[in-house]
Simulated scan of single mutants.
Amino acid sequence: MFTGIVEELGTVAAVVDQGDAIRLTIEAATVLEGTGLGDSISVNGCCLTVAELGEGRWTADVMQETLDKTSLRGVVPGDRVNLERAVTVDKRLGGHIVQGHVDGVGEIVSRSPSEHWDVVEVSLPGHLARYLVDKGSITVDGVSLTVVEAFEDSFTVSLIPETLARTTLGSRRPGDRVNLEADVIAKHVEKLLGAHLPTHRSTNDEED
């Protein structure tokens, strides 16, 4: 589990194509402190397992399922990535509960710079729209953000200078793909209430 508070920007050092997977090596510093083999690190919002550790770098295996459903498919050496270690029980939950399980991929639609922040619009896969509400939480490339406005097929967020400087969102441009994770609490509430809400079929039956 993560908080969506990025600890550092890492740099992709190597991408080894294994056919149905890749081996991804990332240069980092902060996230290597206290990290051992088998630990979890979020990379642009994707929870990856540390398979190898080296001096100033670490390696993870990225399976086909992850490549199919996230933006990690397109990473190349030199790319910057958002990194966060799994949260510990004594750490402040500065963002919100993030699992590192990407729900879909969106695209940067537009960004409107102002003196103190940027307003960024991100496209939204249709199946995720029901989980977003104004002032609710969304994770974009592993960054915990507050939704400014939620639309049917997109949403906007305001990026403060700290976010612009310390994460990849500062350099994302229209057309760039980003990983999205909806608020897990919203998904659990939907699941729990599903058994008690009328279905479309039952509503029609009652009208008949």
Rank of each mutant, 00 (worst) to 15 (best):
M1E: 08
F2W: 07
T3K: 06
G4W: 07
V6G: 04
E7K: 14
E7H: 06
G10H: 01
T11E: 13
A13Y: 02
A14F: 07
A14G: 03
V16A: 13
V16W: 00
V16Q: 12
D17G: 00
D20R: 14
R23V: 14
L24A: 03
T25F: 01
A28C: 08
A29K: 15
V31N: 05
L32S: 08
G36Q: 13
G38T: 11
G38M: 08
G38I: 11
D39V: 03
I41W: 02
N44K: 07
C46I: 13
C47W: 00
V50D: 04
V50I: 08
V50G: 00
G54M: 09
G54P: 11
E55K: 14
T59D: 03
Q64Y: 03
Q64G: 02
L67G: 01
D68R: 13
S71V: 10
G74D: 14
V81P: 04
E84R: 01
R85I: 00
V87P: 00
T88S: 15
V89H: 09
V89G: 05
D90I: 13
K91L: 14
R92V: 11
G94S: 03
G95R: 04
I97D: 01
V98T: 04
V98S: 05
Q99Y: 06
D103K: 05
G104K: 07
G104R: 03
V105D: 02
V105K: 08
G106V: 10
S110D: 12
R111V: 04
P113K: 11
E115N: 13
D118E: 14
V120H: 07
L124C: 11
H127I: 04
A129L: 02
R130A: 14
L132K: 00
V133E: 07
D134P: 00
K135V: 01
G136C: 01
G136P: 05
V140R: 03
D141C: 10
V143Q: 06
S144T: 05
L145H: 07
T146P: 09
V148C: 11
A150Q: 06
F151S: 14
F151W: 12
D153Y: 02
D153E: 15
F155I: 00
V157R: 02
L159M: 04
I160M: 11
E162L: 12
E162S: 10
T167E: 04
L169A: 01
G170Q: 02
R173K: 15
R173F: 10
E181A: 09
I185R: 03
H188W: 15
H188C: 11
V189D: 05
L192Y: 12
G194K: 10
G194Y: 04
A195Y: 12
T199Y: 07
S202L: 10
E206W: 15
